[in-house]
């Protein structure tokens, strides 16, 4: 089966997969080949590989990574052929030599939200949104990647694990250990990414799970029954220090470069109560995206090649 693709060189290795740069022989197109370590199927196939295949094949969108093909080579390993995307948002945020202007942030937010919107309208939660999972194509298009933690909205008698999403981007209902959540957790993560883009530094960098609670509520106020009905019944809601919610002026000071509507959108995405948190529809139709400056065209966005790729 692998005669349709060539593997050229290794570009990365994760816990359950090795990623190679390759070429589709028929078209000469660059592809990324994710070889899943199966260990001879001793313990079965890794869950995240199944999730990745299952949900990526459902999704086809400009801002979601494309799963081109799946094959197994010599009967041993499972290979996912994905679109090759040379850069990611984290590399851009961390490269201090790159200047990010508000129009660039708007463009990236727009593409992220479009991608998330597409997942959500198909009933899929990404559950691991963070800058390093937002890959950037050579033409500047931002694409959601790494669907290893994704899942479909389940029936009420299914219990979702709350141990998802990289810690810094974890929504408060996850911090409280909720087992029944919705796409609002992805919106929260996008909000934190939005803040990170403006600050050029992680917005809520908790050192461990307990610290994450403290950092999050220090920045955004501790939720109470009044602003989030039912919150005190969530499993991990106990022993909380009550921090006051930030005033508008405090937020303005923190995000000095943000316009008023940018702050509105940020507050909408970082609303503590998931029922009141904006959904992707509301975010995308917000006036932040309409007002000046217009979002930068993807081709003109700042770029960075990942180390080792030339």
């Amino acid at each position: 089966m692998s005669d349709r693709y060539t593997k050229e060189r290794k570009v990365g290795e994760g816990t359950y997969a090795v990623v190679y740069l390759g070429k589709q022989i028929s078209s000469g197109k660059d592809v990324a080949i994710k070889e899943i370590k199966t260990g001879g199927f001793k313990d079965g196939l890794d869950m995240s590989a199944i999730r990745e295949v299952k949900y990526l094949q459902e999704l086809s969108h400009e801002n979601v990574i494309e799963l081109i093909d799946v094959f197994s080579d010599s009967g041993k390993n499972l290979n996912l052929v994905l679109e090759f995307l040379p850069s990611d948002l984290e590399a851009i945020i961390n490269d201090k030599s790159i200047m990010i202007v508000p129009a660039d942030i708007k463009s990236w937010m727009l593409m992220t939200l479009r991608g998330v919107h597409h997942c959500h309208r198909n009933g899929i939660l990404h559950r691991d949104l963070k800058p390093s999972n937002l890959l950037i194509s050579p033409t500047g298009q931002l694409k959601l990647a790494d669907f290893g933690l994704a899942r479909a909205l389940g029936s009420p008698n299914e219990k979702f694990t709350s141990n998802v999403v990289t810690r810094w981007y974890r929504a408060p209902e996850l911090l409280f250990g909720s087992h029944h959540y919705s796409g609002a957790i992805d919106v929260w993560a996008v909000g934190v990414i939005f803040a990170e883009l403006m600050l050029r530094t992680p917005y809520l960098p908790g050192k461990d799970d307990a610290d994450q609670v403290v950092v999050t509520f220090q920045a955004l106020g501790t939720p109470t029954e009044a602003i989030w009905p039912g919150v005190s019944h969530l499993p991990n809601y106990n022993n909380l220090v009550m921090y006051p919610p930030p005033s508008r002026q405090e937020l303005r000071n923190r995000f000095a470069a943000a316009t008023e509507s940018a702050l509105d959108l940020l507050c909408g995405m970082l609303t503590l109560d998931p029922n009141k948190r904006w959904d992707t529809d509301k975010c995308l139709t917000h006036k932040y995206f309409v007002e000046q400056p217009r979002p930068t065209e993807p081709l003109k966005l700042p770029k960075k090649e990942k180390k080792g790729d030339k």
Partner: peptide, 20 residues
């Protein structure tokens, strides 16, 4: 209260099921 506070929406599940 567990479902309500976590932001779970039954309608979204129906939609997803229909979609499937």
């Amino acid at each position: 209260v567990q479902f309500m506070a976590g932001g779970y929406k039954l309608d979204l599940y129906y939609e997803r099921s229909l979609n499937e």
